[in-house]
């Protein structure tokens, strides 16, 4: 039996009205939300913007987003076979889709 996770994602850039898009991604126990997002970009929609770097190690801390309204690392939050709502961090400036400005001011391009 094949099961899926439904990822409901807030899309759009800074200053644009939000769009919601829901994608189905294959679910396997043990996978992370980031695994699902990476599968989605490769197989469904490469235009989805997200920030990640170390993929699995939880070392870079770049993949912070909100899952069902709670702040998580996409690389350690588990994918589940249900609808999961993914949104950018609410307290950071939105750049695009799930990407926000998370660098400290002294490490940003100005």
């Amino acid at each position: 039996m094949s099961t899926v996770a439904k990822l409901k994602i807030r899309r759009g850039s800074h200053g644009e009205p939000a769009r919601w898009q829901t994608f189905e991604v294959p679910f396997e126990p043990g996978q992370s939300v980031l695994d699902g997002l990476r599968w989605l970009r490769i197989n469904k929609d490469p235009t989805l913007a997200m920030r990640f770097s170390c993929i699995n190690a939880n070392a870079c801390k770049e993949c912070m987003i909100q899952l069902d309204g709670e702040t998580v690392y996409a690389c350690t939050a588990r994918l589940e076979p249900r609808e999961m709502t993914l949104t950018p961090l609410p307290n950071k400036t939105l750049i695009r889709d799930l990407v926000t400005e998370i660098a400290p001011p002294s490490e940003r391009f100005k």
Binding site: E28, G30, S32, N56, A57, N58, A59, Y73, C75, T76
Partner: peptide, 9 residues
Amino acid sequence: APRLVGMDP
């Protein structure tokens, strides 16, 4: 294996 998240391989 098994799938391990949050750790470097």
